[in-house]
Design a protein around this nucleic acid. Structure first.
Lengths: 245, 245
DNA sequence: TCCTTCTGTTGACATAGATCAAGGTATTGT
DNA sequence: ACAATACCTTGATCTATGTCAACAGAAGGA
């Protein structure tokens, strides 16, 4: 039943290996589950939290997807990243207890709410949980470094190709197809994330299509020639941009 | 004596409020000090570690400065950031135990080496230390987000101005002048960090000089009109780009 | 079903910043 | 002190991407 989706708890969650419970023992996962609050579904374009809000919680994506962004005084936005199931949002609030970016749902989505105070207590009790927190934080930092590399030194075509490979890899680790998927974000979101305009993104999609590398139909993407796509983003060592591996 | 600089330990270190000991009690700082290994000075252009190395340690800058970068198959580099005294290097290795970037000294520098295994043990014992680790990690993430914003949506002039403000603020928090300082990095490093060419960086320095906003003489920088410099990087909310505050 | 709105595509043109090239100024080593 | 090298600046030109504009297809509401 649909209503049960809300209530699936960590020990039964198919995402547990991608999320905080990874590496924990069964009873430890149960302990973790006791502090998790399930929230009602978040609708498309609904904000999970806003930049500047007090950050008392972390949020794990249970289903759907989200976009994080920083906005400036003029209302201009810079998209910082996209979050898929199993990924943790709100880590930037660990610094001072305030979120430095806003999060909006790209589709109807579910999150698990993790109160930071309880999580801290639990980290002290469960060494494996503390380690997993550090691993996740390290991953976030490494992934942000990849984004800096992407924005600093890559052409429009490389950026678009990298973006697709990044998604492909994350869908694969969720057990979905790595070659066929639907984008949950608009062209505008992709463009903004990649530091490009929507026109440029659109043109790159068109070019990759004409070359037969991908098939694009609105939000649906099919990767026909993974090797070519990867070759587009060379010259990067495979294990550098973690998402190309 | 010069040789004593090596041996200053956390309880006596003037950087302790910027570094890991912040917020700890005196006896806790002493405990932390027992796991810190002092290393011999790192010379200019010497590598602290290389991308791909096993990361068993974190490193805190005691004196001098460092540059971190990712290199690709062609030997091209993307500078990820610069590290000043009190800042922690190597956090990206928390993910899988391998460094995802390389670190090189920009001048003769000193670091404190913190074995991760010992640090983890200590975090379990000292709740304040675990909190401080999380704060530092959150800060790193927030600062990386600022870099993404910078590279994604800012003009050359805004990037250069932001870079100067970023340094100004960090020097100020170290107790140095916020308006007069020497750059420890070459133009090439600045350009690469900002996703620009050295020619463009040079031209922006020249323009800011002609406008009387700064005085540049090789590596020495003087900020004559802080308000103008900040106005250059508007439109960003002051508390968004944390380094402009 | 039709109309409106939102989203994405394509083309023509403009421009910020890259590239190419030359010369100037510190710094280093002998 | 001098030569050699590394670093930085400036000018001329080129190009990838942004901007402006028009249109086309999908989605949603009445």
């Amino acid at each position: 039943m649909e209503s049960n989706v809300h209530k699936i708890s960590c020990p039964d969650c198919r995402l547990s290996d991608l999320c905080l419970p990874y590496g924990l023992q069964q009873n430890e996962v149960k302990q973790l589950a006791t502090i998790v609050k399930n929230k009602r579904p978040t609708q498309t374009d609904e904000y999970l939290y806003l930049q500047g809000d007090a950050g008392q919680n972390l949020y794990a994506v249970k289903s759907g997807s989200f976009r994080s962004f920083i906005s400036d005084a003029n209302g201009n936005e810079q998209t910082i990243g996209f979050y898929l199931p199993g990924e943790l949002m709100g880590l930037d609030a660990l610094q001072h207890g305030f979120f430095t970016c806003s999060i909006v749902a790209l589709e109807t989505s579910m999150v698990c709410e993790l109160p930071l105070s309880r999580l801290n207590e639990l980290c002290a009790e469960i060494p494996g949980l503390q380690n997993q927190m550090l691993r996740i934080l390290g991953k976030e930092i490494a992934s942000d470094h990849d984004k800096i590399l992407l924005l600093g030194h890559r052409s429009a075509k490389e950026r678009v190709a990298t973006f697709l490979l990044m998604l492909s890899r994350r869908y694969a680790s969720l057990g979905f197809s790595s070659t066929e998927f639907n984008l949950s974000m608009r062209r505008q979101d992709i463009a903004n994330f990649l530091g490009l305009t929507i026109e440029t993104v659109s043109r790159q999609f068109t070019e990759l299509s004409k070359d037969g590398v991908i098939t694009v139909k609105q939000r649906s993407i099919q990767i026909n020639d993974m090797a070519s796509l990867k070759a587009t983003v060379k010259p990067c060592l495979p294990d550098q941009l973690s998402f190309i591996a």
